[in-house]
Nucleic acid binder design. Sequence first.
DNA 1: CTGTTAGCGCATTCAC
DNA 2: GTGAATGCGCTAACAG
Lengths: 332, 332
Amino acid sequence: MATIKDVAKLSGVSVATVSRVINKSPKASKASIESVTKAMRELGYRPNANARALVSQSTNTVGVVVGDVSDPFFGVMLKAVDKVARQHNKHMLIGNGFHEAKTEREAIELLINSRCESLIIHSKGLSNQELIDFADEVPGMVVINRYIPQIANRCIALDNHKGSYLATEYLIKHGHTRIGYISSTYDIEDTQQRRAGYIDALVANGIEVDENFIEYGTPDEEGGEKAMTNLLSKNLDMTAIATYNDYMAAGCLSIMDENGIASPQDVSVIGFDDGIIAKYLSPKLTTVRYPINIMAEQAAQLSVQLAKGEKSNEYPRMFVPTLVRRRSVLAK
Amino acid sequence: MATIKDVAKLSGVSVATVSRVINKSPKASKASIESVTKAMRELGYRPNANARALVSQSTNTVGVVVGDVSDPFFGVMLKAVDKVARQHNKHMLIGNGFHEAKTEREAIELLINSRCESLIIHSKGLSNQELIDFADEVPGMVVINRYIPQIANRCIALDNHKGSYLATEYLIKHGHTRIGYISSTYDIEDTQQRRAGYIDALVANGIEVDENFIEYGTPDEEGGEKAMTNLLSKNLDMTAIATYNDYMAAGCLSIMDENGIASPQDVSVIGFDDGIIAKYLSPKLTTVRYPINIMAEQAAQLSVQLAKGEKSNEYPRMFVPTLVRRRSVLAK
DNA sequence: CTGTTAGCGCATTCAC
DNA sequence: GTGAATGCGCTAACAG
C-alpha cells in the first residue's frame, strides 16, 4: 500500500507538502495541490489512520460498549451515538459487553487501548468502583443507563423506579387492584428498581403487597411466558399485569392468548421500554417509554465535550420515563 | 498516559524486554516478567493499539458496513460477525451506509484508512464497478447480500427471486389466485428480484399478471400501510398478499385490521425476512426466512481467511431462503 | 510557500 | 536472556 513517501516521490515534492494538501492546509500552492492530488489518485493512496492517530494523539473515535448489538434497544442507541459522532466528524468503535463483567471489562480495555477519546459505556456487570476507576482514567468516558453517585456528572440514566411506579399507578387509576408483576431474573439495578416502583405504587395506594403476585423469568419472551404461566397457575384472580419489559409483556400476552384470556378485556397488560415490538403486538402494547435515543444522543454529546476538556452541566442527566397509551389496558 | 518507556524505566529493563513480556515472548526471564508486570500495573499502562498496528502492520480489526445499525436485521448480522471476530481475537469497526452511495463510500474508505484487514460490506448504493475496485484493493473484503459476478467468490448473497417465488407459490398451493403484491420503492436489486419472483410464480402457474395487483411503498410499516390502502381501494377481490418484507406485511395487516378485514380468514398475508417482529404480529406471520445470521457468520469467516491470504471455496455462497409457516396464511 | 527533521509508541532485528 | 538501534507512516515545528 502506497505511503506518503511514495506520493511525495511521484509528485516531486516533499512529504511535508503532501501532508499539507492532505490536511487542506492553507499554505499549499495550487500547483502542489494539483500534482499531489494526481499522484494520490494514481497510487490509490490511503492515509494511514493509525499513523495519524499516533502522531496527532487523537483518533477521532468514540468507543461504545453495548449489551448486545442484536438487541434493537441497543440498535437505536448506537444510531443515536453515530448521529452525533458524525456531526463531530468522528466514527464509532463498538464492543459487546453481554452484561457480563469479564466481557465488559475486555471491551472497555480494548477501546482504551485503541485510544478512543470518547467512551460511552453501558455496563451492568462491572462494579461501581471499577467503572469509577475507568472514568478516572478516561476523561471522555460517560456511563449510560446507570447512575453512579461518585461520577454523577458522567452518567446518563433513567429513573426506572418512577417508570414502573407510573405504570402501576396507571393500572390502579383504571380501577385495578389485583395487579401481578412479571420481573426479571437478571440481578441488575434495573430489575430491583422497577420491581420497587411496582411495590411502592401499590403501597402508596393502599393495596396490599403479596409476593405471590410477583413472578420471575429471563427478560425476554420465554421468560414472560414462563412467569405468566406460573402466575396463572396460582389462580389469583388478577385483572392486570405490569411487566419488566415489552418482551416479557409479549410472552405474557402470548400465554394469555393460548389460554383464552383476552387482553385487555379480561386482563390488562403494561410493558416497559416502548421497544420496536410494542406497537406490533396485539393488542398494541401500552407501555413506558424509555427515551434511549435522546439519552444516547446526549451521552454522546457529553462525552465529546468531556473529551475536549470542556465541562458541561446543561443536560438533564436523569431522565424520566413517560407513559405511552395504546390498547392493552382497559378500565375495570 | 504511560508509554512503554515509562514502564521500562520503572521496572529497570529496556523497552525491548517490556515489549517481550507484553507479547508473552518465550524469551523473557521470570524476573523481568514480574518486575515489568508490576510496573505496568503501577502505571496503569495501556499498550497503544495504534502504535502496535503501525509497526506490526496489522490492526486485528474487521470492518463492517451495514445499512443502519438500528435495524434489527443488521443487529443480528453484526452479532454474527462479532462472534467469529471474537473467535479470531479480532474486533469490529462499524460504519453506517444508509443505503446511499456517498455514505457507503465514506464508510468503506474510513475502514480502509483504518487498515481493517477484513471488510464485510453491505452496500446497495454503490455500483458494481466501484465495489469491484474496492475488492481489488482489499484482499479481505467480502460483499454480503449482493451478488457481483466478477467477484463471485467474494460475495455471500441470498436468492431473493427464489424466496419470493416460494412465497407466492405457497399462496397458490393454498388455492389463492387473486394475489396482490406489496413492493418496495427502493430501487435496489432486492426489490426487482423479489418482485420478479412473485411474477414468475404467477406465470408458472398460469395466473394472469395484472399490474393493478402490485402496489409500492417505502419498505417499512408506513409503506406497507400506504400500499395496502391503495390496493384495497381498487376493489380487486384479492384473497392473498405477498409482501416485500415483514414490516410492509405489518403495515398491511394493520390496515386490514382497521378495515375489518380478518387475516387469515379473509385475506392471507405472507412476509419476507423472518425478522424479529414476524412472530409478534397477529396473526403470527408466515414468512420467508432470510438466514442473515449464518450468512454473516460465513462472510466473516471468509473475510478473515481471505485477509490471511488463504483461499476458500468450501462455502455455499448463494443461500436459498426457506418458508416459515405460521398463522397468516389459510387455504382458500 | 517548501523541505528537513524529529519524534509519536511500539516490535524487532542484531549484537552481546 | 537482554539492550541499542531502526523504522512503521505520519504531522508539526523550524529554517529557509
